[in-house]
Design a protein around this nucleic acid. Sequence first.
DNA 1: GTGGTCTAGACCACA
DNA 2: GTGGTCTAGACCACG
Lengths: 127, 127, 127, 127
Amino acid sequence: MFLNIDLDSKIPIYEQIENQIIIGISKEILEPGEILPSVRQLGIDLGVNFHTVNKAYKALESRGFLRMDRSSGTRVQEAIPKFREREETIALDSLRVIIAEYSSRGYSKKEITHKIQEIIEEVKSNE
Amino acid sequence: MFLNIDLDSKIPIYEQIENQIIIGISKEILEPGEILPSVRQLGIDLGVNFHTVNKAYKALESRGFLRMDRSSGTRVQEAIPKFREREETIALDSLRVIIAEYSSRGYSKKEITHKIQEIIEEVKSNE
Amino acid sequence: MFLNIDLDSKIPIYEQIENQIIIGISKEILEPGEILPSVRQLGIDLGVNFHTVNKAYKALESRGFLRMDRSSGTRVQEAIPKFREREETIALDSLRVIIAEYSSRGYSKKEITHKIQEIIEEVKSNE
Amino acid sequence: MFLNIDLDSKIPIYEQIENQIIIGISKEILEPGEILPSVRQLGIDLGVNFHTVNKAYKALESRGFLRMDRSSGTRVQEAIPKFREREETIALDSLRVIIAEYSSRGYSKKEITHKIQEIIEEVKSNE
DNA sequence: GTGGTCTAGACCACA
DNA sequence: GTGGTCTAGACCACG
């Protein structure tokens, strides 16, 4: 199980599941077409209610990352679409705030760029 | 008034205020030592309750960005401290998820780096 | 209910709640991991508004004494951290003033030490 | 000028003045019968409003530390009285909370005693 | 069920 | 004038 959930975190559990799956896909731990555990099974594995897992799966489906099918289960989408404009705006806004916080706290462009490059390498070790 | 609040956003109003102030400091629209509007005045300007503004100011104070004083009002902190480890971990986790989402959606390292550089330039036009 | 609040005290109610909880933890009336009353229930018990209780709980959370969770309620933190420097400085400053007052009023070192030892025994009967 | 006021502190200025004078008496920087600066002069020296100084002096007078006289100025009281019960209760309550905080944070009796002994030595170097 | 957000309005403390 | 405390009550989010 590659999912690492912190029950004491301030981040809602369903959102942690979403995040970890996205990171898993990015790192190619999860491959296109791969079948994910059922919501009930994953709920047991993580020790959380299966409704919580279902909420995460549904959200990821609507965002284009997963494909849910009553008979064949839940799979990673083969062709995950680019951002829709509204979603990218939200992502870029979050990015802007984080970078602004680094900047306000006195980190240099070089330091910020370095930190971000490390993360890019971490989640995208291919290419 | 440099603050732009969306009352219909999913992001809590007080958090939007925090974010905009941090961006303002980063862009040097707000300078160290500069006095901010009073919680009540900013509440009127933004059309929100002053308790909401107060919550944002207090949070920014505890994060080291502002200094609040009963008698003299609220100012931008002169020396904003570096990240504490726990806070930076949270920031980097958010960054990781955003970058992983770009990556999963098929954006190349080059594209991601380019988008981020644009934001760095935007919020940190000095240097 | 181990909490004893004086509504007429000059000390803010939320601060009295904070203080009593810290003393409760010290005396091991409250144990690590123990669940506290909900903010609304404690408000009813104490005859104060739940926002006041919430303010105390939030402050204790940020000081590392409690852990709040939207779904599972509020618990005593398992590993309460040591003082951060700034916080300890404030505590020691308060201590200095109190001891200086005893000293100015003509109490001897021996008397002061005795009074303090009594308190240490009271709040820390283990060891 | 032995008074050291921090205008950015959360502690009210008048209270800082009270505290510093008590510490000064304890350290025998201020001696019994010694004349203090006038409220106006001290206000100028500290860069604060003289009403603020006056508030501190008045409070110290009612607590038995100072003697104010319109014609001869303000002096340190020759025989500062012992605590009144109500005042000592407040002092001991503050002490209890600080010690409980150390205890809750895992400091041992020995460590706490050591820290307090250092302060006692600092403010009461005679005897 | 829990805490989180937001509003509205009262009264107090500081300088 | 400023922020600080407290009340009262609404509606939302999480699990």
